[in-house]
């Protein structure tokens, strides 16, 4: 019962498509322990991203409760949601999503900007993280000057900058070749060893081996087989 970092109960997300309602998530109940590395798998359109977005406080449930690190996100304001997002969640996207006009270092520091603090502190932490993902020499490069794998490493460093407890990675290797994808996965495994709770959406069955729990999704519902 204790040490659940994510507690989801009867979560439903309904989209209005034309006249009919479409349930992208249908009464999903899911609890994730602190330090878990969870793979979320399922066919395209089964609701994986929708679930990730709600856990990541980017979206709100239509009904049901979602408690992230003790906070019920159904009842908070937009601003508080942004705050929770900034502090507790680190996002890693399939398309890396670095800010194109900012250097690698500034991209890593960006989440800290929205939480405040001095520039010197931020740049120092960003430099540390840059080292952690092995790209110290690339600090002043723009995203367009980096390879896909390098961009994803920067994105991981960025996800870590506010020291969040949860990392949400929605198909992080989807745009990378197998070898680079494996390197990224190893990085995530290392983070998980450091205590981060990681949710990974993936199509690649081969990546299951890196995780310690698999959640299957189909038509907005969860079917879990351990």
């Amino acid at each position: 019962m204790k040490d659940y970092v994510i507690e989801i109960d009867s979560l439903t997300k309904t989209y209005q498509t034309g006249k009919t309602d479409f349930k992208a998530l249908n009464t999903v109940t899911l609890k994730i322990k602190k330090g878990d590395f969870v793979a979320i798998m399922g066919p395209s359109g089964s609701g994986k991203s929708t679930l990730m977005n709600i856990i990541g406080c980017l979206d709100r449930p239509t009904s049901g409760t979602v408690i992230i690190d003790g906070e019920n996100i159904s009842t908070v304001s937009d601003n508080e949601l942004a705050e929770i997002r900034g502090r507790k969640i680190g996002f890693i996207f399939q398309k890396f999503n670095l800010v194109s006009t900012m250097t690698a270092l500034k991209n890593i520091a960006l989440p800290m900007v929205f939480l405040g603090g001095t520039r010197a502190d931020r740049d120092q932490r960003a430099a540390e993280l840059l080292g952690k993902v092995g790209l110290t020499n690339w600090a002043t490069h723009l995203p367009s000057e980096l390879s896909g794998g390098q961009q994803q490493r920067i994105a991981i460093a960025r996800a870590l900058s506010n020291n969040p407890s949860i990392i949400l990675a929605d198909e992080p290797t989807g745009n990378l070749d197998t070898k680079t994808g494996e390197q990224i996965m190893k990085l995530l495994v290392a983070l998980n060893k450091e205590g981060k709770t990681i949710l990974l959406v993936t199509h690649a069955i081969a990546l299951k081996r890196f995780t310690n729990r698999v959640v299957n999704m189909l038509d907005g519902k969860i079917s879990e087989k351990k």
Binding site: N79, A82, R87, N97, L98, P111, F114
Partner: peptide, 12 residues
């Protein structure tokens, strides 16, 4: 990028 910034904690 706006979506990204919001995802990493930018307020409106």
């Amino acid at each position: 990028e706006i979506g990204t910034m919001m995802a990493i904690g930018a307020k409106r």
